[in-house]
Structures are given as C-alpha cells and as structure tokens.
Design a protein around this nucleic acid. Structure first.
Length: 359
DNA sequence: AATTCGGGGTG
DNA sequence: CACCCAGAATT
C-alpha cells in the first residue's frame, strides 16, 4: 500500500501549516481543553463558518465547565438553536456534570476516560488530547479521510468502519512527535478544507503534497475518496397550526427522544390536510377558532427525512389540549424552536408584534 | 452493519 | 438537485 506517501507528507504539511493556518477563535486558547472541547463538538458535521458566532456566544453564556454543568437547560438549548444535532448540547451538559463529579471539574487526560463521556467519540477525544494536551493521538475526520485516500490513491469505501480503522492506524504511523500532533491534526483539516477540497477539483498546485500524491499521479484526485451511496430520504406530509389568541401563540414540547427531541414546535399532525379536515382536527382538540388568516406551504429538508408542510394561521380563543403552551413576548422568544418551524415562527412573531402595538 | 440525529453551503 | 461538513449514539 501507499502509507509511505502519507508519512512523507508530515514534514511539508507542518511547514505549510505554519504559513497557512486559518485564524480561528478556538485557536487563540489551544491549551484550554474546555474551549477545544466546545469547538470540536460544535464542529461535528458542521462547517467552520456556521460555528463561529455560536462558539463566541456559548462561551459568554457558559465560560467554564462548572457554569455549563450548572446552567439551565432552557438557556443551553437556546444557545444551540439553529445549529442542529441538538443531542450534542445535551450530551455536552451531561459530560460537564460527570466531569464535575468524577474528575474534579477538569476534563480527563486519557483516551478511555474521554471517550467514556457522552458525545465524545474517537475523533473528538483525539482532537482534545492532541491540541490541548500535546499527546500523540490522531484525529481522523472527513477531511483527513479524503486527504489520505487521495495521497495514497486508495479507492476503498471510506464509509466502511473497517476501512476507517485502517486509515486511522496509518495516520497514527504518520504522526510527528507528541508536541506537534495538535498542529498536525489541525493542518490535515485545514489542508482538507482549503486545498484538498471535497466535492470539487482540488487545488493541487497549492498543496504541500503535490509531488508525492499518488492520487494526483494517477490523475484520480477528483474521483477520490470512494464512498458508498446512502439511501434516499423519505418524504413526510405534515399540517402545522399557527394558533394565535389573546395569550399569544400556541406551542408544545416535542417528545424527549427522536427528531428534535424536547424542543418546542407548533401543534401539527401528519398528512396534508385541507381546510375541512384541518377544522376537524381543531374541533377534536377543543380549539375555538375565530378566523382563518392564511395558508402557508413550507418545506424543510433533514438528512434522512423531508417535511412537506401545510400551515394554517388562525385566530382563536386560548383553548385546546393541556400540553399547549400559550406564549408571547419573552416567553415566546425564550423557547427553542428549531429551524424546521422558522417560517411559522416568523408568521407568529409578526402577528404578536402587531397585537402589541395595538395595546 | 445500518440508521438516526440538523442545518446550511456549494458545484 | 446531490453531496458534504473538525461525528456520535443507538439499533
């Protein structure tokens, strides 16, 4: 195999990194394991550009592990609103609490203890240990898999766990001495993000590995890595109600498990209901409607499911099932409503504001 | 080994 | 539209 190519990259890569490292907020305090941890969790399956603002705001709200452990869930989730994969935030707080109890408030320094904390897996443990603790541990993410596949001209399926394990072992062999491993891991990610681009023609002329890349040599750089196709999304039809009363808009909490667990949503039912069917649902709920305002079509795409939503905005009395929560003003603003319902939240806000002015 | 978890940027 | 992103946990 071509692991040798990966090993040959190490020295030029570190040199490239010294001149081309991106300036990122979490790189200002690399020795602060808490900062590194927060950034790594936020960056899971999430681009740097999306994380920046969230990172700054999160650390303002929860400056230390202790503050995070003691923080209120409502505030925590509000901090995460719009970032996605909300279990990351919940796991973060669970891990913070375990850290207070088991490790005296400091993140542990071994791979086993770190991966034992909720939300910290193979990659994140490697990132924390190498960047904040100067330990010789690899951090293999999507960037590294792509880079390694190209430089070794390896066409094995990087979606396969066994293949990933082998890649990790090869990267481990290519690692520099411990004190440079944080830089090495971050250099691989920077090179992957800015030069060895995903889903596009890589900018090989700018790459420190251009003369030793087996993929480029074979002219296959842009068709690597190979990844098994994932199955397509299913489509779900839903009917969403924006119910507006003198006490505000109706929200309810989603179940504690599953999609958007524990977040707030506008009351909704399965199916694309017409007005008559929708009216029957409201009757069943015991909602006294005063006036139908309008109908809105909205679509939201998740990774594995696609919601086609029919929304009804209507004025009503503040009646309905016990799990309805009528909220306006700060109460409404404080509740975490996921992006999937953004179109309906905006509609509700517009009406609530208008009412506020009349008063 | 497969599926489930969000949301957004990009070709 | 399809693909991917500083992945992890659950089934």
């Amino acid at each position: 195999m071509n692991q040798e190519r990966l090993r040959q990259l190490t020295v030029p890569l570190l040199g490239w990194y010294e001149r081309n490292a991106r300036e990122l907020p979490w790189r200002e305090t690399p020795a602060n394991a808490y900062h590194v941890w927060i950034s790594e969790i936020m960056l899971q399956q999430t681009r740097v550009a999306a994380v920046r603002e969230y990172y700054a705001r999160f650390l303002r709200e929860f400056p230390t592990i202790e503050a995070l452990a003691q923080g209120e869930e409502e505030r925590l989730m509000k901090c995460w609103e719009g970032l996605g994969y909300y279990s990351r935030a919940r796991n973060l707080q669970k891990a913070a609490r375990q850290t207070m109890e088991r490790f005296g408030g400091e993140l542990p320094r071994t791979y086993e203890e770190l991966t034992g904390l909720p939300g910290i897996g193979d990659y994140t443990a490697g990132a924390i240990l190498s960047i904040a603790q100067g330990q010789r541990v690899p951090a293999v993410d999507g960037n590294v898999l792509r880079l390694a596949a190209r430089i070794m001209d390896c066409d094995e399926d990087i979606a396969d766990v066994k293949v990933r394990r082998r890649f990790r072992a090869w990267v481990e062999e290519a690692l520099p001495p411990a004190e440079r491993c944080g830089d090495y891991n971050q250099a691989m990610m920077d090179l992957g993000a800015t030069v060895c681009l995903p889903n596009a023609e890589p900018m090989c002329l700018l790459c420190p590995g251009r003369d030793l890349c087996a993929g480029r040599e074979a002219g296959r750089q842009s068709s690597l890595p190979v990844k098994a196709p994932k199955k397509k999304r299913r489509v779900e039809e839903r009917t969403v109600f924006v119910l507006l009363s003198g006490r505000g808009a109706a929200l309810r909490r989603r179940p504690e498990t599953g999609l958007l667990a524990g977040l707030w949503e506008f009351p909704n039912v399965e199916g694309a209901l017409g007005e008559e069917e929708a009216a029957r649902v409201l009757e069943r709920w015991g909602v006294e409607t005063l006036r139908w305002e309008k109908r809105i079509a909205a679509k939201h795409i998740f990774t594995h499911v696609e919601w086609h939503m029919t929304g009804y905005v209507l004025l009503c009395r503040p009646s309905g099932p016990a799990d309805f929560c009528w909220a306006e003003g700060r109460d409404f603003a404080d509740k975490t409503v996921p992006t999937a319902f953004a179109r309906f939240r905006d509609e509700a806000l517009e009406h609530l504001e208008r009412q506020g002015r009349i008063k």
